[in-house]
């Protein structure tokens, strides 16, 4: 079931100005319930702008957007978006700048209370969200402004999780997180997606961190969507990544090298060191054959090179001899 449909939406920041370029150009998308989407693109490609359309913070300048049962048509400002926003949780970029209450507890309870929960329910949701992002209950009483950057970020993500949204939209949530928290966060999102059927839309400029977790990939470049599809399709078309100025993940480079040099096509990209080890065990026959072939090929070509080199050497010495 499609929960979000974009039909050729465009967005311009300052409407009055002619010089202002479009931040989004003719974007058409369909997001399905219960999938993990990764929006990948270079800086300034319109990822954040697109994301903020999903709960009506920005509304399209052109085109039509539907999120759940709310329709945003160009030119008509939709108000009263509270019901939609209780279903769509949005974590902005630099989430540490979005905390505003005196204590972490109050900040976490703000959303649930706004969406109609009573104090007890809100507190329970707050604790649950805090534990989910890997912080313990001791944080509840602290002021959000005395936390470290990474802790603030986790709290900010928890503030959105506390409202229990069906669609969770995150704008570069892993930037500035340490590697451990990074993988933990992605694992948490994946769990929410798989176990509870929530839809995740995550923006990142690092494809490698979502390569294993995401079901669908959306590439953006200069305000336009240049590709949507699954991982398998993406792996087959690395040129798209280069065109969109996205760093090709090492795993994809490795797969590419293997198919180039050994002639083995890596169709389903293994993830992580263990994944690659498994892959190697599974394909050990093909791999060893390929390696043998590669070894003979390279020794043959070396032989060829020396063969080529020697006659010239002879003629040179002949000339000298004369």
């Amino acid at each position: 079931m499609a929960i979000v449909t974009c039909e050729q939406i465009s967005y311009q920041y300052a409407k009055a100005s002619i010089h202002q370029p479009l931040a989004l150009i003719d974007v058409s998308l369909r997001l399905e319930q219960g999938k993990f989407y990764a929006i990948v693109g270079a800086t300034g490609s319109g990822k954040s702008t697109l994301l903020q359309h999903l709960n009506g913070i920005y509304q399209p300048t052109k085109g039509k957007l539907q999120v759940y049962d709310v329709v945003f048509a160009a030119g008509a400002k939709v108000k009263g978006l509270k019901p939609l926003r209780s279903r769509v949780g949005l974590v902005f970029q630099f989430p540490e700048q979005q905390l505003f209450e005196e204590t972490v507890e109050k900040d976490l309870m703000f959303g649930p209370i706004q969406f109609g929960a009573d104090e007890q329910q809100a507190r329970a949701a707050a604790v649950e969200a805090l534990l989910a992002v890997g912080l313990d209950e001791a944080f509840m009483a602290r002021s959000p402004f005395e936390l470290s950057g990474g802790q603030m970020r986790k709290v900010a993500i928890a503030t959105v999780l506390a409202s229990n949204p069906e669609l969770i939209v995150l704008d570069e949530p892993t930037a500035t997180l340490d590697p451990v928290s990074r993988t933990e966060l992605i694992a948490l999102l994946k769990r929410l997606c798989v176990e509870q059927g929530r839809t995740i839309v995550m923006v990142t400029h690092r494809l490698d961190e979502v390569l294993a977790a995401a079901d669908e990939f959306i590439l953006m470049q200069q305000g336009a969507v240049t590709y949507t599809g699954t991982r398998a399709d993406l792996i087959r078309s690395p040129h798209l990544l280069q065109a969109a100025d996205i760093v090709v993940p090492n795993e994809m480079k490795l797969a590419h090298e293997i198919s180039e040099r050994l002639g083995i096509v890596v169709d389903e990209l293994p993830s992580g060191i263990e994944g690659w080890a498994d892959w190697l065990i599974h394909n050990s026959d093909a791999a060893s054959k390929a390696v043998d072939r590669y070894a003979t090929d390279s020794s043959a070509s070396q032989q060829e090179q020396t063969d080529k080199a020697s006659p010239r050497g002879m003629t040179e010495s002949d000339e000298k001899g004369e």
């Binding site: 913070i57 509270k82 926003r85 949780g89 409202s163």
Partner: peptide, 8 residues
Amino acid sequence: AQASRGAD
């Protein structure tokens, strides 16, 4: 951020 959390 507040708007997203229900207080527009």
